[in-house]
């Protein structure tokens, strides 16, 4: 912050007068705790309601995701299982149902992570 520019080619007394008027006229006090407490009460309220929303939204998102994708789990699982079968020849066989369960768990985890971050 500087104010040397104000004196360039102008009467410094005029600038000093304006500075005094703008700086001193009706300025709120530093450390006005009443104002600070008022703001922080609203901030805390907002922070806690955001937290509550996240806490409620995560299970809701998971439930919605599960409900929306449940009918597709079987067919999608079968397709992926078929595609992955050559890679899993030596591994214990994973049926379409097992794969569906894995996908549901991954989707739920993703939804929970998303809710936590937003």
């Amino acid at each position: 912050m500087n104010s040397h520019w104000m004196t360039n080619g102008r009467d410094p007394d005029d600038d000093a007068l304006l500075r005094a008027m703008f700086a001193e006229g009706d300025r709120p006090p530093y450390g006005d705790e009443t104002f600070v407490k008022g703001v922080m009460a609203r901030v805390e309220k907002q922070a806690s309601s955001a937290q509550a929303w996240r806490a409620a939204a995560a299970p809701a998102l998971i439930a919605f995701g599960a409900a929306a994708f449940y009918p597709l789990l079987g067919p999608v699982g079968a397709v992926i299982g078929q595609a992955a079968a050559p890679l899993l020849q030596n591994a214990p066989a994973i049926g379409a149902g097992g794969l569906s369960l894995l996908m549901a768990a991954a989707a739920a985890g993703g939804a929970w992570l998303y809710a936590e971050r937003t």
């Binding site: 703008f22 009706d26 300025r27 709120p28 006090p29 530093y30 450390g31 006005d32 705790e33 104002f35 600070v36 703001v39 922080m40 901030v43 805390e44 922070a47």
Partner: peptide, 21 residues
Amino acid sequence: TAAFESLVRRNQSLVRGFLRR
């Protein structure tokens, strides 16, 4: 929120004074 409270305390006079003008 504690850090933000310090920011409010430090800058409230500036912001309120500016808005009063």
